[in-house]
Amino acid sequence: MEIQSSIDKVRGWGDALIKALPNIILAIIVIVISYFLSRIVYNVVLRLVNKRVPKITIARLIARTSAIIVISLGLFITLNVLNLSGTLKTILSAAGISGLVIGLALQGTLSNTLSGIILSFRKNIKIGNWIETNGYQGEVMDINTNYFVLKEADNNIVILPNKSILENSFKNYSLTTKIRVTVTCGVSYNSDLEMVEKLTTETINQHFNQESIDTEMEFYYTDFGDSSINFMVRFWIDGTSGVPKLKAKSKAIIEIKKAFAKADIDIPFPIRTLQFENNPLSTISAKKNK
């Protein structure tokens, strides 16, 4: 009886295998097609992303993700072909729970990775741009999957999380080819203010040709200071980073100082005068004499 029962089971398995053979063959075909299709998708996506993203690690990550999606779709189709919908539901449930646990555990890392991918596709920030963000200013050296690298003017390297760049505002000096420079100064109260304005604008235009730039130079007297009448002059230079701005401001200060000295225009410095109405030492001496 036991032998006959075993034989019946084997026959039943054989019959089931024969019935399921077309589905098995179809499932194998689907898996093979999914594999080769994923390779094609990987290469195509990598080629397309490379045109938009200069960082190869980001491009490969996006291409691998696309290939995994294709393989996953092929796996789900295969399970349906084999009538394993129950197994498919179990896998989806397990994947959902595992994804939730992993997402909570790696929330910061995944956030930085996603932010890095988004930053790689943004047109207003690229490698080589000079930006200012999160209290730092420098050249963008790298946009990686987890961090953002800046090189400051003093050659220090600053590494920032991608999330902080995406969530905070930043100033990109490289988006335009012109930078406006502002210089403030003060002259004494007995100065000829019209002459000061004319001399300042002529000096700036002499060393920073403003005629070749469409935007006009601006000169304003700002306030009556404690020891001077203060003014502000704003002019434009060609540049895409903060270094030319610092150099232009330094040169403007030097040239304005030279021009004022030549024209006998005084740039005063604060002076504090102390006045005593009563002399306490004299009072004490008088009391002692008595």
Score class of each variant (00 low, 15 high):
S5A: 07
D8I: 12
A27S: 07
I31F: 00
I33P: 01
R39K: 08
V44P: 00
V44Q: 04
K51T: 04
I58S: 07
R64T: 04
S66A: 15
F76V: 05
N80K: 06
L88M: 12
L88H: 06
K89N: 11
A94D: 08
L100I: 14
L100A: 15
V101D: 07
L106M: 15
L114D: 09
F121G: 09
G138A: 10
V140A: 05
N144T: 09
F148Q: 05
F148I: 07
I157G: 14
P161V: 10
K163F: 08
I165K: 08
K171L: 09
K171P: 00
N172L: 02
T176M: 04
I179K: 00
S191F: 03
L193W: 07
V196P: 01
L199Y: 07
T200S: 15
Q210S: 07
I213V: 05
E218W: 09
F219C: 13
F219G: 13
R234C: 10
F235V: 05
G239K: 00
S241G: 14
S241Q: 08
P244N: 08
K247T: 10
A248H: 01
I256W: 06
I256K: 06
A259H: 08
F260K: 09
E277I: 06
P280Y: 13
K288W: 09
N289Y: 12
